[in-house]
Design a protein around this nucleic acid. Structure first.
Lengths: 343, 343
DNA sequence: GCTGGACTGAGGTACGCTCCTCATTTACCA
DNA sequence: TGGTAAATGAGGAGCGTACCTCAGTCCAGC
């Protein structure tokens, strides 16, 4: 005999199909004693609900929205691609996914986008945005409307999001520091390029980085962060200045957006080959730089995993079922020239 | 309107449901012109078959077997755990998974196990075993019986396996070499511990390692491999001897099984703290060693990913449908003290 | 004993698909 | 032109589950 079905449970428990159904779906109107009988039959027969049949019958459809930063960055682009890819795989079975792009540094625009969302009927939102009071409020409203909300890449710990999906950014910064410290042959100064002090992920990476450099490599000194504000020209300019004026520069750590102009400036200064450069996220730029030994290593998170995880967690929150943590933990991956994933 | 169904296709193509079904399932008795009409309707509406409904109806059940090395190693154990975990997730929907354990270094025992399999009615096999002529023959027989076969962790390129699921072991060795070379502060000798020269994965890792050391770090010299043969006592002995007799030893690379006795021997020699040690796979042993700075880095592959991928690919082969490569490529992950995944 | 409420049983319909049968139409060849 | 085979339509049963309705049972409390 194959897998037991609800019919088998009904027979085994000596109750009707309807009662089994009531128990399995936690519907009211069943005596505790009967519930127990059914439960026992379930364990005795080792019944497991056939989820595909269940979903088919339930004709449940989830409507999810991904709120992602607008255009520009290569990382954001690959995220969007990942969303599209995943949404046509079996993980996105019965879910309709939309992507809303918002300008990263305009909290009001983000809030407007989120407000427009709450009016739609939708089940879940995955948000990648800096944590501002306005964004927090908007999330509060979404939650009040009964929508599942997860933070993506950069956490929003003070908003009532159901979950954070992304790497531990402090640990990522610590990892970068460990690699930097061990790769550096001599002591000197390290330049850190951050996105903006308002981006929680940048901040946390910087924090982790400083901590490990201070504890494990005290002979190295880390310069104050340069804030890029997603402005390539500004980054080129400032990095160029630093490269020219700091003879002791030995390493550069780019915590997020802006690796392309950073590399251009360093190439221009002619010092690139002597520096240990670390960056985040595997993009066409960092891939090329790795192959040409311009970047020593890249810290990355698998965007496909990120998106799949977001889908699974949003679903789990919607259905109020527990999450299988181990599968959802996003790895801090270290990519070097030799373990570059194929294109 | 939601996703299009077969009914929509029938209407759109102006044919009956039965004809659509015949076309979709490649059953005979349909004129080429009609087939074309249906095909067009499918693309026009963007129809994708609801596989869970299809499987439900088909009452298809897949029976897969994982042939894994017996007991001993920590990696093998975590693989088995992963199989059990995955088999109760939605990926293993409608598949019955069994694990067969075989003694790694007894090709005849492996073949006996595989033979016993072919008599059962089963749909797919995932094998992790060294490539011997006997194993090859057994796989030929399995394929002749119409069973899907994939190689796990260690490839069997000369057997008619449908696929290989695991990392590119040459690249893994190259990655190890790159890390080793950059971490080493001074020149000297590097010890490599391999499982057995018969294990293809060990061989390939060693090959990749040597290549990069020779090209990028020519001042380092790599000693001849020590073969561990999965014998802890033997490993402790030989490694202890090398540590005692080789004052120039600066690095150690453990390509597979045997990291535990290796570390014990090195600890005993009192030289562990001065060596750069790299190992494969995250296990309780390597985890502890990373935290205590005894191992500099671990090269690993995500066993969960490995198993899920094997399931998906076996299914795809059974159903003769294409594989979404990007999702199946197993990453070569680099783990250091700071990016250790939580337990 | 009667009533109301809580429980339970029986059965139906639906989800999207597969696979079957049987009748009907179409096309082609002799 | 009729005959025949191929092509197609129509419809039904079933996969395992969800969810609905309606009727019937049981028991406590009055």
């Amino acid at each position: 005999m194959g897998k037991p079905t609800v019919h088998d449970i009904a027979q085994e428990a000596g109750v009707s199909l309807a009662t089994v159904d009531r128990v399995l779906n936690a519907r009211p109107g069943v005596r505790p004693a009967t519930i127990e009988k059914v439960r026992e039959a379930v364990t005795r027969l080792g019944y497991v609900r056939d989820t595909s049949a269940a979903n088919l019958s339930r004709r449940r459809a989830y409507r999810f929205v991904f709120v992602l930063p607008e255009g520009s960055g290569q990382f954001a682009t690959s995220l969007k691609t990942a969303v599209r890819d995943v949404s046509r795989s079996q993980i996105a079975d019965r879910v309709a996914v939309k992507v809303h792009e918002v300008p990263t540094h305009d909290p009001h625009a983000i809030v407007r986008a989120l407000k427009r969302l709450s009016s739609d009927a939708l089940d879940g939102v995955a948000i990648m945005a800096p944590e501002t009071p306005q964004v927090r409020d908007a999330i509060v409203r979404l939650k009040e409307a009964g929508t599942a909300v997860v933070a993506l890449v950069s956490d929003l710990p003070n908003a009532p999001r159901d979950n954070f999906i992304g790497i531990d950014n402090i640990a990522a910064g610590r990892t970068a520091a460990l690699i930097m410290g061990r790769f550096l042959a001599k002591s000197g100064e390290i330049l850190v390029l951050t996105n903006s002090m308002r981006s929680r992920d940048s901040l946390e990476r910087r924090l982790g980085f400083d901590t490990v450099i201070a504890s494990d490599f005290p002979t190295q000194s880390v310069l104050p962060s340069i804030e890029g504000f997603e402005d390539p020209e500004r980054i080129r300019q400032i990095v160029g200045d630093v490269a020219a004026s700091r003879p002791d520069l030995v390493g550069v750590y780019s915590t997020g957006f802006g690796t392309t102009p950073l590399l251009e400036a360093l190439r221009g200064s002619g010092r690139l080959k002597d520096l240990v450069v670390l960056a985040h996220e595997l993009t066409p730029t960092t891939r090329r730089a790795l192959m040409q030994n311009e970047i020593a290593a890249v810290i990355m998170q698998d965007v496909g995993h990120l998106v799949r995880s977001a889908m699974r967690i949003l679903r789990a929150v919607c259905d109020d079922i527990p999450i299988f943590d181990a599968q959802e933990r996003i790895r801090i991956e270290v990519i070097m020239r030799e373990n570059l994933p194929a294109t």
